[in-house]
Design a protein around this nucleic acid. Structure first.
Lengths: 338, 338
DNA sequence: GTCTGGCACTCGCGTGCGAAGAGTGCCAGG
DNA sequence: CCTGGCACTCTTCGCACGCGAGTGCCAGAC
């Protein structure tokens, strides 16, 4: 096991490297942090840390930089989550409170996260499958054409066209609308399938085909996982990455454009608190030189969706984690109020 | 006026520079294009072109590169629009035809444009103010709370909450819904205000407050220009920009995040055909080293919105213009069908 | 044992110089 | 008006050199 001082040395290395972006040497370390020992001692500790794989040197005889494993230890054991200051909290709240609809909430959240962390922000729209139905509306657009509108308690609206197998009268439509809403309004999406299962039986034979079509469209909309949307912002912060630009930034931009990749990335984090995935811990190759800090958010106790940031492995973890957690909390509040 | 040959020289310079990304010299020019004259002659022409401000040399005694003014002349007089090949056209059509809803159409269009041009693609959602109303729906969520849903003929759906000044009965609601739709369904958004002006008078005094509130919410939704959304894609193509990376790419990414900037950018192009704005012709400073190729698209003869690409001034103008025009055409078709 | 100061060693990085190459401008002749 | 020739300008590249930061190791002190 590593001695207490060696852990302190690692912490100091991470902090300095994050600040300066340059490999940090033994002398600079003793000058900037009062560890109470000489550079020579620190050198020994560094050699040990390097043996264990926590730090590495880019070339012989340069300073050390933390490895992914080093950051991991730092995040797990050496650093807490830095809470936001009261003025920051107030700023977050003010910024989010002006939102007028769900799109706006998400858009504001993205901007806020990007500004606070100076990194790329990713916010997932509240998940359909975990939220509840507020209302289902059916509109007749043509004799055999309906529009199905689904409104969630988070304010999200989904609409689908339904082509009916047979003309569907106004009264049948009103009937279906009423029955549908009385069964599913206020219920969780995941419960809907079993609640509407026997609905066609309540209708006359002529209408059953249409009712079934409407229901299957509704169920499709519910389970359609690929409809999980997200919003990205702050990509300009990618320019802060480092000097070795193009090669690093390119795959990151590509990964960010693949919503599938991002959704999987966010989905993998099961931890109820803030999750940090560092460098190669990310399954997607393009993100091997980035870290992803994410957390679930939701209006109640339960997480409806995730949000987070993507930045260089060399990032201010305590600050970023604090910002992500705080933003998630306030977004949850806002959603609960609306 | 410039002689015919000098224009040919300019065209050759633009083509070569776009291809190689390197300043082009007189010798290389005569070798790659058979102009029928010697390098010395070309040198004289180049000197003249430089005097006129069409080309410039990065340093003394390097080749020449086109200036913004040079590209402008090239686009206006020397190059046509390169039409897409039949296989490309088929690919575009296939790619767009799978779309299931408006979001999907826009998303696919962005991907397509980005892939075809290998540049950053920007697609504006069909404008509210220029499209027509398909249906207006009113839902009662609580005794004094309504949801207003507006469906456009392009499939776009907007919803707003309405807090009523007084409870509003189911029958009044049905009445309002029916009257509203009979007046505005199928009409252009810009005509709606005058069509509903006198509607409150048809209701009893108790309900007039609510009707007015609903109407003003509806009108707000219609005029809300800042609700003009757009979708961006292909930002990874920014890495193709050049070697002088960070300084150029940063402001571009920042500009792309400001939807307002982009909307203004697209909005400025009044030309009915493909519009090209080169380098400093763009009002926004961050885009001074980029060119924007845009065009309107729409389901009928009229443009509902714009789409386009943002790329380095050193781009393949004929090809890009061809791709943008073709995509706009097919998107228009798809929208007209739905 | 653990820490410390000293010392030799390794490399990366910036600098200066010289040669090569590409491209230009200008001029005299066809 | 075009062409070939020629001198000139600059950039780029390779290379040698020296500096400085940082390391590893060792002998000695606490």
């Amino acid at each position: 096991m590593l001695s207490e001082r060696r852990l302190q040395v690692l912490r100091a290395i991470v902090q300095d490297y994050v600040g300066t972006e340059e490999p940090v040497g033994s002398k600079a370390l003793t000058e900037r942090h009062n560890l109470g020992v000489s550079p020579a001692t620190v050198r020994n500790d560094m050699a040990a840390l390097e043996d264990e794989g926590f730090i590495a040197q880019p070339h012989t005889s340069a300073g050390r930089i933390p490895t992914d494993k080093g950051y991991r230890l730092f995040v797990d054991k050496l650093a807490g989550v830095k809470p936001m200051s009261p003025p920051e909290r107030r700023a977050i709240q003010n910024f989010l409170e002006g939102a007028v609809d769900l799109d706006d909430v998400v858009a504001r959240t993205v901007r806020l996260l990007a500004q606070l962390t100076r990194q790329v922000a990713v916010v997932q729209y509240p998940s359909l499958t975990r939220s509840t139905v507020r209302h289902v509306e059916l509109l007749s657009l043509a004799p055999a054409r309906l529009m199905l509108v689904l409104i969630t308690d988070t304010g999200r609206v989904e609409q689908r066209m339904v082509d009916c197998p047979a003309p569907f009268g106004e009264s049948s439509l009103a009937d279906l609308r009423a029955r549908l809403n009385s069964r599913v309004a206020g219920r969780r999406f995941s419960d809907v399938p079993s609640l509407v299962e026997d609905l066609p039986e309540a209708f006359e034979a002529d209408d059953r085909g249409t009712v079934s079509t409407v229901l299957s469209t509704l169920l499709e909309t519910l389970v359609e996982e690929n409809e999980e949307r997200l919003m990205i912002g702050g990509t300009a912060n990618l320019t802060r990455f480092g000097h070795d630009f193009p090669l690093v930034i390119r795959p990151v931009l590509e990964a960010l454009e693949e919503q599938v990749v991002l959704l999987k990335l966010l989905g993998e984090a099961k931890d109820p608190g803030v999750t940090v995935r560092i460098g190669h811990e990310n399954a997607h190759e393009g993100l091997n030189s980035t870290s992803v800090v994410s957390v679930g958010y939701g209006s109640g106790g339960e997480a409806l969706a995730k949000l987070g940031v993507v930045g260089p492995t060399r990032m201010d973890y305590p600050g970023t984690m604090g910002a992500v957690r705080a933003v998630a909390r306030y977004v949850g509040q806002i959603l609960a109020e609306s």
